[in-house]
Design a protein around this nucleic acid. Structure first.
Lengths: 144, 144
DNA sequence: TCGGATTATGAGGATCATTCTCATTTCTGT
DNA sequence: ACAGAAATGAGAATGATCCTCATAATCCGA
């Protein structure tokens, strides 16, 4: 968590004509301190009073600014995390039963290969600014 | 597309106590002939009359039987494709703007590495029967 | 092959995460 | 401080998805 995290976020919000308000900062703090992607329900329940409509609206704004990333699994709840370039590159281990998500980091060799292949394949299909997402799907211990 | 595709599907449905009815077969045929994952809306619009509630129910049944796979992107529409072991192992190129999905196959070397890493990471986290999903995220030509 | 039990179908209604509306509050620049 | 613009929050509206239930199709034993 860089010391200038909030400065970086301020800049990104400015770039899309948005302010870094207290409510948005509160959301960012929650996401930064969570060890895994967080659902809206978790944000609303977890202590601090965050109005539902503001949470949705501000997460959408933060997503547009490239500050947060929305993750959709097979359950009905979207999950949010800080954008990778604000934390560190990682991937997800997803439970096919309950939709739960865990973080993990891949070995450097695999990442290198992924980066190269992503560029090649995306280029061939005419896609621009490619990034990649690697999910491992299985059954988590509590659903086994 | 194996000649015994429908036999295989019949067996998988039987295994979960379900029948391979004409309506379900129609859905499978649609998915088998599509070059990319298909949305419910595309299934409903595309010529043949498929009642909405039956489409949802039967796709859920086929998913439980391991015959079809549900793909969720950032837009509001779930997409469906035949399970990988009924077609061939492949991955997806997803447009971050419109949510559109294209298929692609990864080089064998990358697949080998992915398989190994998936087993290692999932095992360490206590996840069972791991599989992997590699998505390349970018902007498609029509959204660029 | 026939009848009865079981399962699938389809039309419409219900659900619920998400998004929108709008009156009020807060911020920014002067 | 002030005017204009943007953000907030409570509640209503939206819409993809799922459920209900009466009808129709299928299976199976005799």
């Amino acid at each position: 968590m860089p010391a200038d995290l909030h400065d970086t976020i301020t800049q990104r919000l400015r770039a899309v004509g948005q302010r870094y308000t207290p409510g948005r900062r509160q959301l960012v703090d929650r996401l930064a301190s969570a060890p895994r992607p967080v659902t809206i329900a978790e944000l609303l329940d977890g202590g601090a009073r965050v109005p539902q409509s503001s949470a949705y609206r501000n997460l959408a704004v933060l997503e547009q600014a490239g500050v947060v990333h929305r993750i959709v699994t097979s359950d009905d709840f979207a999950r949010f995390e800080l954008a990778e370039d604000l934390t560190e590159h990682h991937h997800h281990l997803i439970c096919a039963v309950c939709g739960g998500v865990e973080d993990f980091t891949a070995p450097p060799g695999l990442e290198r290969t992924l980066l190269r292949v992503a560029g090649e394949v995306a280029g061939a299909a005419g896609f621009t600014t490619p990034t990649h997402r690697l999910d491992l799907i299985g059954t988590c211990p509590s659903c086994a």
